[in-house]
Structure formats: structure tokens, C-alpha cells
């Protein structure tokens, strides 16, 4: 009988003192912190290394073996990157390009995307086919389309222009916006808009005045995602532009192909380029835990 088994179990266990058990429990219950600490070190050590090298004088950088702890500190690398030096251009123009392109393309993607998500999520046009088709676009990475886009842009004269990059980035991020916003649209109460219709508002007014304010938190999440995506993109930025119009991601490898490998400068520029990402990681965190995996279609 089961209960006999359990009882036998119980009396066998009593031999172990409860102090031993408490110790064991304490030990066992600390394992998450061991895992988390390990991962934090793994995740953050490279970031620490960038910061370290960015503020390290050239002489110290090329020492062997590399010092793992901070040694002398200098602002030279940052200064060279910011103001330019004989071996490299100033970073500011590249940051400016990245910022301009990221902001404009994000705004376009958000405007298109939220309208589309609203149409799909509220009125279910096009059945599941349309939404599936739009969402499936998210799975085509830039690299898969870079060749035809290059040919197309060459024909259209869009290579190496702000406009070209803005267009292509908007289109690549619209599906992300639709995907993120559809979840928000579907979970927002439709009664609010229906009340507005009853009060005589048109569809557009109800969308702008009632629905959009409710969707604001979702929009800010989507804005963060699109901004980061565009800011971080390298393949298209390099291949469809990268000479006259060059973004920060294109700037970084250039430092490497310069005469000497500009370690300190690369680190300094990398540091500048990851700042927005680090700021936004906090914002992304909240959304991701709520279950991004099933986002749009839930």
C-alpha cells in the first residue's frame, strides 16, 4: 500500500537530524544565485572589457599579458574618436547619421505599423492570411535580400543615400511593429471605441482619440525595438550605403582596416555606440518577460 511506503519513508528519514536538513536546504536554495552570478559575469565581462580598453592608454593596451584590472586611465581614445585624429574620422557625423536614420525610419515604421496592426487586430481584414503574410516578413533577415536590394537600389539611384536606408529600414521594421502591436490591440478593450462610435465619432477619430492613447505603452515598446534594430544594423548599412552616408556600425570596422589596429579607438567608439542599447535593455526586459514568444498572435 502506498501509505505504508510513505510511512516507511518517513521513519527512515527521521534519522537525519533536522539541522543537517536545514543546512542542505540552505545550500540547495542558493543555487540560483550561483547560476545568475556566473551568467552576469559572462554577460558583463565583455562590456567591462570595452570600457576598460576605451579608457586605457595605448601603451597599456598593447602590453602582454593584458592587465585584467584597470591600470592608467585616459580620455585620449574617446577624444580621438570624438574629434577625429590623423588615422580616423570624427565619430560625430556617423552617430548623427545613425540617429537621423533610426529616428525617421522608426517613426515611419511605427505609423504604418500601428495603423496596420489596428486594422488587422480590430477588424480582422484579410483573414489570417494577411496577418500571417505580414508577420512572416519578419523572418527574412536583411542578409537574405541584400543582393537584390543592392541591384534594385543601383537601378533606382538610392545607393548611399539617407532616403534609401530610411526606406529599407522602415520596411524591415514594419512587421516587427505589427507583430508587437497586434497583441496590444487585441488586449485593449474594444468597448471604448464602440462607446465613441455611439457618441458619433468616426472610425478615424475613434482610432486617434481613443485607441492610440490606450496603445501608448505598446508603442513605446515597439519604438525601442525598432530603434535598436536599426541602430544596430550593419549588413544593409554597409552594402547599400557606407561611403557618403555611413552609420556608426560602418564606422567601427573602418578603424580596424586603418594603418594600425586602433584598439583603443575601436573600444571607445563601440562604447559610444552601445550606450542606447544599454539604456533600452531595461525597457525591453519588462516586455520580454511577459512573453514575447507568442506576442502578436495570442
Amino acid at each position: 500500500m502506498t501509505s505504508q511506503k510513505i510511512k516507511k519513508n518517513r521513519s527512515r528519514r527521521i534519522v537525519r537530524s533536522s539541522r543537517w536538513r536545514r543546512l542542505k536546504n540552505r545550500f540547495v536554495s542558493s543555487w540560483p544565485w550561483v547560476v545568475i552570478s556566473g551568467f552576469l559575469i559572462f554577460a558583463l565581462f565583455p562590456v567591462y572589457w570595452i570600457v576598460l580598453v576605451a579608457f586605457r592608454p595605448r601603451g597599456d593596451i598593447f602590453q602582454y599579458p593584458a592587465a585584467l584590472l584597470p591600470t592608467n586611465l585616459t580620455l585620449d581614445n574617446i577624444r580621438f574618436v570624438w574629434f577625429g585624429s590623423p588615422t580616423n574620422e570624427p565619430v560625430i557625423g556617423f552617430l548623427g547619421n545613425s540617429l537621423l536614420i533610426s529616428v525617421v525610419a522608426s517613426v515611419i515604421a511605427l505609423s504604418f505599423g500601428v495603423c496596420c496592426a489596428y486594422a488587422l487586430g480590430r477588424f480582422r481584414i484579410g483573414g489570417s492570411f494577411l496577418s500571417m503574410w505580414i508577420l512572416s516578413q519578419r523572418f527574412l533577415p536583411p542578409i537574405a535580400l541584400v543582393v537584390p536590394l543592392f541591384l534594385m537600389f543601383r537601378q533606382l539611384g538610392l545607393l548611399d543615400t539617407h532616403l534609401g536606408l530610411i526606406l529599407i529600414y522602415s520596411v524591415f521594421t514594419i512587421p516587427i511593429v505589427v507583430w508587437l502591436m497586434m497583441g496590444y490591440v487585441q488586449s485593449a478593450p474594444r468597448e471604448l471605441e464602440e462607446a465613441a462610435y455611439v457618441d458619433g465619432a468616426g472610425y478615424w477619430t475613434a482610432f486617434v482619440r481613443i485607441a492610440l492613447p490606450v496603445l501608448k505603452p505598446g508603442l513605446s515598446v515597439a519604438a525601442v525595438f525598432t530603434f535598436i534594430f536599426i541602430w544596430n544594423e550593419y549588413v544593409l548599412a554597409f552594402q547599400l550605403a557606407g561611403n557618403k552616408v555611413a552609420t556608426i556600425t560602418v564606422y567601427l570596422p573602418r578603424l580596424r582596416s586603418a594603418i594600425a589596429e586602433l584598439y583603443g579607438e575601436i573600444a571607445a567608439a563601440s562604447l559610444l555606440s552601445v550606450l542606447p542599447a544599454i539604456v533600452f535593455a531595461g525597457v525591453m526586459q519588462r516586455f520580454l518577460v511577459r512573453g514575447l514568444a507568442f506576442g502578436g498572435l495570442k
Partner: peptide, 13 residues
Amino acid sequence: SEIVNDHTPFERG
């Protein structure tokens, strides 16, 4: 008659 504070739910039956 046994103190079960430190027993798992299952051991308590």
C-alpha cells in the same frame, strides 16, 4: 507522534 516540520509534502503523506 512525529515532528514533520522539515519533511517534504510527500513525506508527510
